[in-house]
Simulated assay, not measured.
Amino acid sequence: MAKILVNAIEIRTIKFNEEDYISLTDMLKAKDGEYFFSNWLRNRNTIEFLGIWEKVYNPDFNCAEFDIIKSQAGLNSYRLSAKEWMEKTSAIGIISKAGRYGGTYAHKDIAFEFAMWISPEFKVYLIREFQRLKDEEQKLLGWSAKRELAKLNYRIHTDAIKQNLIPPELDRKKVSIVYADEADVLNVAMFGMTAQEWRDANPDKKGNIRDYATINELICLSNLESLNSVFINDGLPQSERLMRLNKVAISQMKVLSEVTDRTIFLPDLKEV
Results as ranks from 00 to 15, higher is better:
D32P: 00
G33W: 11
G33T: 06
G33L: 08
G33V: 06
E34Y: 12
Y35W: 07
Y35K: 10
F36L: 02
F36G: 00
F37W: 13
S38F: 08
N39E: 13
N39V: 07
W40F: 09
R42D: 05
N43L: 01
R44Q: 09
N45C: 03
T46K: 00
T46M: 04
F49V: 04
F49Y: 14
L50F: 03
I52W: 09
W53D: 04
V56M: 11
Y57Q: 05
N58Q: 03
N58L: 03
P59F: 06
D60Y: 14
F61G: 03
N62M: 01
N62L: 05
A64Q: 12
D67C: 04
S71Y: 09
S71T: 12
L75P: 00
N76E: 15
S77F: 10
Y78L: 01
S81W: 03
A82T: 06
K83N: 06
E87M: 07
K88Q: 09
S90L: 08
I92C: 04
G93R: 04
I95M: 01
S96D: 07
S96G: 04
S96M: 09
A98T: 10
A98D: 11
G103R: 07
G103Q: 06
T104K: 03
Y105P: 02
F112L: 11
F112S: 13
F114M: 05
A115S: 14
M116C: 08
W117C: 04
W117Y: 14
W117H: 07
S119A: 10
P120E: 12
K123L: 14
L126P: 05
E129N: 12
F130C: 06
F130E: 10
Q131F: 14
K134L: 15
D135S: 12
E137C: 07
E137N: 12
Q138G: 08
Q138P: 00
L140E: 15
L141G: 08
L141V: 13
G142L: 12
S144P: 01
A145H: 10
K146V: 05
E148C: 08
L149S: 11
A150Q: 13
